[in-house]
Design a protein around this nucleic acid. Structure first.
Lengths: 210, 210
DNA sequence: GACAATACCAAGCAAGCGCTTGGTATGTAA
DNA sequence: TTACATACCAAGCGCTTGCTTGGTATTGTC
């Protein structure tokens, strides 16, 4: 029965802590456009000239804000994880039962992927290979915090014998299933995000629930 | 209780029909190496020089076998779908109950992704964007046949009220979940492909079953 | 109003890209 | 033996790529 946590408030506090760029600022706008381009064309196919054109500057001027193209990709990923971790934490905290917490996690991740910030989330999932070894390690560290949220809830459901499969395996299956929605789900179709969430729950044999 | 269908026999008959290249021939060897490189580095990051070096020829000589680099990607995808469709059909035909058929589909797809031919299967899933519009349409046509196999079985399970969620949605969730295994599952770990299949069934609330 | 820092432009470099070209061995058939 | 196709090499063309450089507006600070 979670009231959708205030997305804007969380975003604002992250901006205040300098953990996420203000989407109105130059840097934030670039990251937003970059996320969109990376999702649509892939990191490799997106040129620095594409990126620059998207925010209306010359390609060389990009390197005043970022040292390399890869640094842009990394920034997109890091800020996306930070935002979504915060959103997840709030959503889980607002839910009562364990099953509700799972529902909240699924719903929030679906929203992260298919909502306004979805472009960045898709990049996080599909452009992994384009990160250098060093950057990958850094991003992974943040990702672990995010994943721990899931494993806590799935572990509890396993203890309650509501979900019988291994929590690690279930989480990984859900990662694939939910992120894959970016390739086919359209919010303006006949299925709402809540409806999609219910379908996922139903697929796991979990009821319409409370 | 399906006896794993004879993989080699199916492969041979496809080669005889000229639907799949002989992996011992020059073309087949290149496609195999290409699939590996595309999976590991991505299509864009793989250069024609990489491809040529993998089979021990000069980069220019590639274009004696294929007109463009994209044609190589397309060939990898087309042949992979053809092989796996045939494998799927055999696996489904060999299973008795509907639930067994689902198990066979899951098991076969997991094997396709994580087994010997898995590299190509991963390419099929993750390098979609790199195909031109025209090639995409052609590959999609083949893919529809493959997907129909799944939808038949999932539709039947839905009629039987064994799986309550929408067959289309379930199939798409499974596509994501199963293909995502390529990023984390290692066959030499503690979990066998049969074990993994059971975990997926368990996640859907379907028993250890027959 | 002086002065630096910031944000950008215009131009272009070096490297790497997909692909072409002209030629040479090797195999097969008449 | 001649004739022709197949499978390759060596060289490199034209273009795009990420990124650099040197300079100029714009902004904030005292």
């Amino acid at each position: 029965m979670e009231q959708p946590v205030n997305h804007d408030a969380i975003l604002k506090s992250l901006i205040a802590e300098n953990l996420v760029s203000d989407p109105n600022g130059a840097r934030g706008r670039l990251l937003r456009e970059a996320a969109g381009l990376f999702r649509d064309k892939g990191y490799e196919r997106t040129t620095v000239r594409d990126l620059a054109a998207a925010v209306g500057i010359q390609s060389g001027s990009l390197f005043h804000h970022f040292r390399t193209k890869e640094e842009i990709l990394k920034a997109v990923m890091v800020e996306t994880i930070r935002l979504n971790t915060a959103l997840m934490q709030a959503a889980v905290a607002a839910a009562d039962t364990t099953q509700d917490k799972l529902r909240a996690l699924i719903r929030t991740e679906l929203e992260s992927i298919n909502g306004q910030t979805g472009e960045a989330m898709a990049v996080l999932v599909f452009e992994w290979r384009s990160l250098s070894e060093a950057a990958r390690a850094e991003v992974l560290e943040l990702r672990d915090i995010y994943e721990a949220l899931w494993l806590d809830v799935l572990g509890a459901l396993n203890d309650e014998k509501v979900v019988l499969a291994d929590p690690f395996v279930v989480r990984r299956m859900l990662t694939g299933a939910l992120s894959w929605t970016v390739t086919w789900y359209r919010q303006d179709g006949g299925l709402s995000l809540d409806g999609l969430t219910s379908q996922v729950m139903a697929m796991m044999g979990l009821g319409a629930d409370a």
